[in-house]
Design a binder for these strands. Structure first.
Length: 552
RNA sequence: UGGGGCGUGGCCAAGCGGUUAAGGCACCGGGUUUUGAUCCCGGCAUUCGGAGGUUCGAAUCCUCCCGCCCCAGCCA
């Protein structure tokens, strides 16, 4: 089924691939890869890349590999790797092969030996500080290392010794012999292997040298038969190097790199380094904190995979530095959940209402639709009784203009139930409202009241059967749209990003919903049963509020 | 006069020499509504960073200018 909203909007990469296929390039194959380093959890920025890579391959009947770019054992782990696999699968994509750059270490090494033999690579013994000095600056050319003209034999011997662990970290590095005067700094004899004696989570202690990104990535793409290597803009300057390595090592069938703009979202940060900082400093509660833009966090928050894919569809793919407003994301879940989430009533900040006209032990079962528009979602029964809870904010003694909820002496509709009138406000000695005494109009169930208009409708729960719940409300993690503009971005943390309503009540039908079940609490928003919920205590997260067009 | 990119309404974004310059988000009306939600209907760029030029015709081609982003890890 393809509707207008399912259609993938045009973008320059899709146009390019469409043309490639039409031109019979790569034999009409579209093979992509999503290549994260397992050094953190996936976030919305990765979702954009995942949707692009998997989506475009799917559209042209190609395939996509999930490849772990695991060439830096200092930062990588099994935990991150499994989290990444789970998140990609959760988003709804299926990879053709699960690949690891570390699986190519032997081949990569062989290619390196070949480059040395072709006099296109050499072992440099300058220190890292010296290499930086020799590299020159953005405006000045670099100069050649005194080790640049070692013989092939010497280089071969040294490289072999590096591999065998005969040298310490930092002593040598294998460099490509390109052009120290290049205006592109990436071409000034980039290092492709460094000595590192760290234990690798997959290859263990087998290697004493590890290949670097620029050398590894293009070759991994070529080894896997990738046709279109899509990455973010910051790698644009690396493309000449990507192509150089492939030209020197791959006779044919070379993949091509194309860059697109990374995702930026207001009021949050999308960089693994920053997210790691938030997690490790304890500013948030782990990688799946519902305030985080990580896929694990969004999942726990209650976002659906479809809503995230829809978000990626709506934001598009370009090369401009886009900063997306949060409402775009929020609107995606709302659109979906409005269709799919069953309605329930919940009172977050309760105040007791006593229906003085209702007999003490009278219980009346009321049938309510689970969805206002979709009868397939069925109905449920909620019992009406003498004592109820309503939202404290739904009553005002001194109502603001246009207030259409309950006021002293005024009437309001209890959703799917009766119209009530507030007759008396009971307060404690501090003046806090403790109870509202109301009378109901028995002739208003399922029908409009006679001879007058009641403008407001408010939600309620029956005190006799309400279930207590902790309801967690989330706000944006940062209080400014561009937290990175702050000297220290953590200074921009919103201190009120989480607020918990510990005395909330929900209607009984919510009680046995499994973790992950989503509801719309009428008039409030969409909520999900949190993983912390137990038989003894229900815990719910607000995914997103309802739109509120009331300017009062 | 280091190199590489980008500039279409508040935020995204289609557009690829001839269209009344798509669409979404946001916003502003108005209607329906037992959710101030949803839904519906209407509004929202005489103009595409600026100035010149080419052309019968320019957001689309050329020139210059302006603004913004990225790059000097033995990170990815």
């Amino acid at each position: 089924m393809t509707t207008e909203t399912d259609a993938i909007p045009a973008n320059f990469i899709r146009n390019m691939i469409e043309k490639d296929v039409a031109d019979n390039k790569h034999n009409k194959l579209v093979a992509t890869r999503f290549p994260p380093e397992p050094n953190g959890y996936l976030h919305l920025g990765h979702a954009k890349s995942i949707c692009l890579n998997f989506g475009i391959a799917e559209e042209f009947d190609g395939w996509t590999n999930l490849r772990f770019d695991d060439t830096n054992p200092d930062k990588e782990s099994e935990e991150y790797m499994s989290a990444i696999k789970r998140d990609v699968a959760w988003l709804g994509f299926t990879w053709k092969s699960l690949c690891y750059a570390s699986d190519y270490f032997d081949q990569l090494y062989d290619f390196a030996v070949g480059l040395v033999k072709d006099n296109l690579a050499y072992v440099d013994s300058l220190s890292s500080d010296e290499i930086r000095e020799y590299r020159g600056s953005l405006k000045e050319p670099g100069k050649e290392s005194p080790y640049r003209n070692r013989s092939v034999e010497q280089n071969l011997t040294l490289l072999n010794e590096m591999k065998n662990g005969e040298h310490d970290e930092g002593e040598h590095v294998l460099r490509l012999k390109i052009d120290m005067a290049s205006s592109n700094i990436n071409m000034r004899d980039p290092a492709i292997y460094r000595i590192k004696k760290t234990h690798h989570y997959r290859t263990g202690d087998k290697w004493n040298i590890y290949p670097l990104y620029d050398y590894t990535h293009c070759l991994s793409d070529a080894i896997e038969g990738i046709t279109h290597s899509l990455c973010t803009l910051e790698f644009e300057d690396h493309r000449p190097l990507y192509n150089w390595v492939l030209e020197k090592t791959q006779p044919e069938g070379r993949p091509e790199q194309t860059e697109f703009g990374p995702l930026n979202l207001e009021y949050t940060v999308l960089s693994k380094r920053k997210l790691i900082q938030l997690v490790q400093s304890g500013i948030v509660n782990g990688w799946d904190d519902p305030r985080l833009p990580t896929l694990a966090g969004l999942r726990r928050r209650g976002y659906t995979p479809d809503s995230i894919r829809e978000f990626c569809r709506r934001i598009g793919i370009t090369k401009s530095a886009a900063v997306i407003e949060m409402q775009v994301l929020e609107n995606c879940v709302r659109d979906e959940l409005n269709e799919t989430a069953e309605r329930r009533m919940a009172v977050l900040d309760p105040v007791k209402v006593v229906i003085t006209t209702w007999p003490q032990d009278n219980v009346e079962p009321l049938s309510m639709a689970n969805h206002p528009g979709n009868t397939d979602l069925g109905r449920r029964t909620v019992n009406f009784g003498r004592e109820l809870y309503i939202e404290r904010s739904d009553f005002e003694e001194v109502p603001p203009p246009k207030f259409k909820r309950l006021i002293s002496g005024g009437e309001v509709r209890l959703r799917s139930a009766y119209v009530i009138r507030c007759d008396e406000v009971i307060k404690d000695r501090d003046g806090n409202i403790t109870e509202l005494h109301c009378s109901h109009d028995p002739d208003t169930l399922g029908k409009k009241p006679e001879g007058r208009k009641v403008k407001g409708v408010i939600h309620w729960v029956n005190a006799a059967e309400a279930i207590a719940a902790d309801v967690r409300l989330y706000d944006r993690l940062f209080s400014r749209p561009d937290p990175l503009a702050e000297e220290d971005f953590t200074d921009a943390i919103n201190p009120e990003s989480l607020s918990v309503h510990e005395n909330a009540f929900v209607e009984p039908s919510v009680a046995d919903a499994a973790a992950g079940t989503r509801f719309q609490f009428e008039r409030q928003g969409y909520f999900v049963v949190d993983d912390d919920a137990t038989a003894a205590k229900l815990v719910m997260n607000r995914i997103v509020s309802l739109k509120d067009n009331w300017s009062g």
